[in-house]
Amino acid sequence: MHIVVCIKQVPDSAQIRVHPVTNTIMRQGVPTIINPYDLFALEEALRLRGAHGGEVTVLTMGPPMAEDALRKALTYGADRAVLLTDRCFAGSDTLATSFALSRAIVRIGETFGAPDIVFAGKQTIDGDTAQVGPGIAKRLGLLQFTYVAKIASIDLDAREITVKRRSEGGMQMLKSRLPCLITMLEGTNEIRRGSLDDALRAARSQIVKWSAAEAGIEDLTKCGLRGSPTVVKRVFAPTTRAEKATQIDMTDKTQHGVADELIAAIFTRQPALEHELAFDGGQ
């Protein structure tokens, strides 16, 4: 089977800094990583390849430096990497991104064989929208399963798939058909460590690089800023509240004394809480 995994290179959000004056992102020295949620999708794809044979192609859209993320994906064991990179993609929102990626997946299908499953992470850590996966599915007319916790079974001959999907308050068991798009839930597996062969192959692989034209995208009005219905009007830092926390002084007091003082302060500010606590709270 042929599996396409969509990944994204993201800045490690723990290390992002904001310029205190201009409120712009200071990118200097911020390392980039594969969006952590995408690794669950990649590992699931590699497991399916192990069970059913076939190939795993990783795809990303981004600047030329996104090649690092793809190479890393190859180190984990993916067979092929495609980088969709073109200045015309700059400023894409979720709709424009899903358009470009879906075109690239069509081209991947034409070039390397039609995919049976397209995987994506459940969301990215920089955008957090969780909308590109569903967007790709709709564009390609694929059946869509988001927040999948487990792929219970795949029958390649009958083209059938059964998945366990997280929903509010429970797990749905769904039976459907291939081809489909799956976004994997976090914590469902653990990314493998590629072998020395994988690492050597990854270091030497040619990454397939496609411009918009090479990916078969002719209608540039659907790409980048022009193809994005949403427009970012303003970026700003959250306003700070005028007053800071009222500090309960610790000097010359025991921890127990301060605890009593704090409880008194809580009940002064939220009188209703005391009754609720007395009746509902405790053991």
Binding site: R17, N23, G127, V232
Partner: peptide, 10 residues
């Protein structure tokens, strides 16, 4: 946006 470091209006 950016992991919650900034807000943006869209």
């Amino acid at each position: 946006t950016f992991g919650g470091s900034l807000l943006c209006t869209i």
